[in-house]
Design a protein around this nucleic acid. Structure first.
Lengths: 126, 126
DNA sequence: CAACTACATAGACACACATCTATATTTACT
DNA sequence: AGTAAATATAGATGTGTGTCTATGTAGTTG
């Protein structure tokens, strides 16, 4: 818990009063869950692999390319899916994954909103 | 560990061969550490608060605005700093934090590189 | 139907981490 | 010098999570 004591504002500190950040559209939780999904090295590499393809990627290909077990891959795919970063389409026994552009877009919107004022959006994008 | 057995490619699956993603500039680890830094609700809100200001933010103000202890805030600031997302400047006893635009920019570059081909960069930025 | 394959689920386990309290360190002021 | 304040560090603790093995489920094929 925070120490809620009455603190006297020192002279040179804490001026001017802080501005409240604009609310995150879609909610902070959704964005944080997306960051969480990308905050694991294996999962980030999986996502990059899926994003590098033109067509949806078969789960078996992902299992083949990483040194973790099949259940671990399945777990990671579910995390990415629940974060809204990838979509799944199942055909028979196989599962195909593709990037959900809306997830990336949502992050991009928030990111550009965090850019310091005065800096162009081109600082966020290539 | 992954089951490294010889898997026979089924008929409709796993064609065409996967493309390898382009290497992440600055290294995947740096980007993942940035995602990690933003993947905690409290830390994300701290970052948003700092990003919403024109001037650097005094640490004491951050402590005041969150319901966690001062050492926890200090810990979070260090994580954000080590991830290259904020900069610190110390004046006397006080510490002032500001967004490091290079950190945001690095994420933006990677993000736009992950966007599905054919979609415009405006899908990543506002 | 039976065997096989692709993926998902369950449970266990080790490690990471967000948080706390207590204390140290550094700076300012009297 | 001595006290008070701002921040950092140390250590403890509970929860979260990445990974595994074992097993389940559902398609496919002989």
């Amino acid at each position: 818990m925070a120490r809620r004591s009455i603190r006297i504002q020192p002279e040179g500190c804490c001026t001017p009063p802080l501005r409240s950040p604009a609310p995150v559209e879609g909610g902070s939780e959704a964005i944080v869950s997306r960051f969480k999904a990308l905050a694991d090295a294996t999962r980030f590499e999986i996502f990059r692999l899926v994003a590098a393809q033109d067509a949806p990627v078969c789960a078996c290909d992902i299992v083949d390319r990483f040194e973790v077990s099949q259940p671990t891959i399945a777990h990671h795919m579910k995390v990415l899916e629940r974060a809204g970063l990838i979509t799944v389409s199942r055909q028979g026994v196989w599962a195909y994954y593709a990037v959900d552009p809306r997830g990336l877009e949502a992050i991009g919107v928030v990111m550009s909103g965090l850019m310091p004022a005065g800096l162009p959006a081109s600082s966020v994008v290539r």
